[in-house]
């Protein structure tokens, strides 16, 4: 509890670091901040070419199906892979200044999250233009779904960033894990394509309900199942609590190990 209070006192630091990250990211490039919107659109184009021309998945409006799942996934995957190195990247700060170190993964994940929110502007526009009529209940659920995903991503980033300080291979291992995770989640294909006998194993993936909930709102135009959402909120909270506990233990020797 003390920890949370301390982090709250440093809220301006989170804000500053997020702002610095977002402002600094596209500095010097011609499109500048527009890349936040252009990048997901171009990714969508590539995936769409592959999956609707070469490997047909047999889903109506596949580009939208893909897009709605891909944007949240890109955020999640950045939080896993980039999150693992965010502490190492800020080692000068950690070795020289005292502040709650949780700030670093929090600001990293938050800045990725803000990126996702901006991309969602594009997602919603594409979705409406494609003829999807989201329900009011669905739209109200959207912030909850995002929050759940944020919490999960934060929990994982807290754990991976602190472990990577002691075990540098984790950075590379997590890059592979993120790739495998993408294919273990119904993003590029519908769940129906998964063979029945693996389905129970497949459903253990905590990201699947999140992706499904996004699709409910922005692809199917319906309100997501509340029961699933509540379970997802619980999973998200557990991940963060676990992350904070593990991070709190491991951060004690950061300054020595870096």
């Amino acid at each position: 509890m003390n920890k949370l209070k301390e982090i709250y006192e440093y809220r301006l630091m989170i804000y500053s670091l997020v702002k610095r990250d977002l402002r600094g990211k596209y500095k010097g490039s011609v499109l500048g901040f527009m890349w936040t919107f252009v990048n997901p659109l171009l990714q969508l184009l590539v995936y769409n070419m592959v999956f609707s021309i070469i490997m047909k998945a047999g889903v109506d409006k596949f580009y939208l199906y893909l897009f709605v799942g891909l944007i949240p996934w890109l955020f999640f995957s950045a939080a896993i892979t980039g999150g693992s190195t965010c502490i190492i990247a800020q080692k000068d700060l950690i070795k020289k200044i005292r502040f709650p170190r949780e700030i670093i993964p929090i600001s990293f994940v938050t800045s990725q999250f803000v990126n996702m929110l901006l991309s969602f502007i594009v997602v919603i526009i594409v979705s409406v233009v494609s003829g999807v009529r989201p329900t009011i209940g669905g739209l109200l659920c959207l912030p909850i779904i995002m929050l759940v995903e944020y919490l999960m991503a934060l929990g994982i980033a807290l754990i991976s960033s602190s472990l990577t300080v002691y075990f540098r291979d984790l950075e590379h291992i997590l890059a592979i894990v993120a790739m495998a995770w993408l294919y273990a989640t119904p993003i590029c294909y519908p769940v129906e394509m998964v063979p029945e006998k693996y389905l129970s194993l497949y459903n253990l993936n905590p990201v699947t309900p999140i992706v499904n909930a996004y699709r409910d709102v922005l692809y199917w135009g319906r309100t997501p199942d509340l029961r699933t959402l509540i379970i997802a909120v619980c999973i998200g909270l557990v991940t963060v609590v676990l992350g904070i506990i593990i991070f709190g233990r491991l951060q004690r020797r950061f300054a020595e190990e870096l």
Binding site: L12, S16, F99
Partner: peptide, 10 residues
């Protein structure tokens, strides 16, 4: 602002 926020100032 960035630097001072790292020192914990609001």
């Amino acid at each position: 602002y960035i630097n001072a926020s790292i020192f914990g100032l609001t």
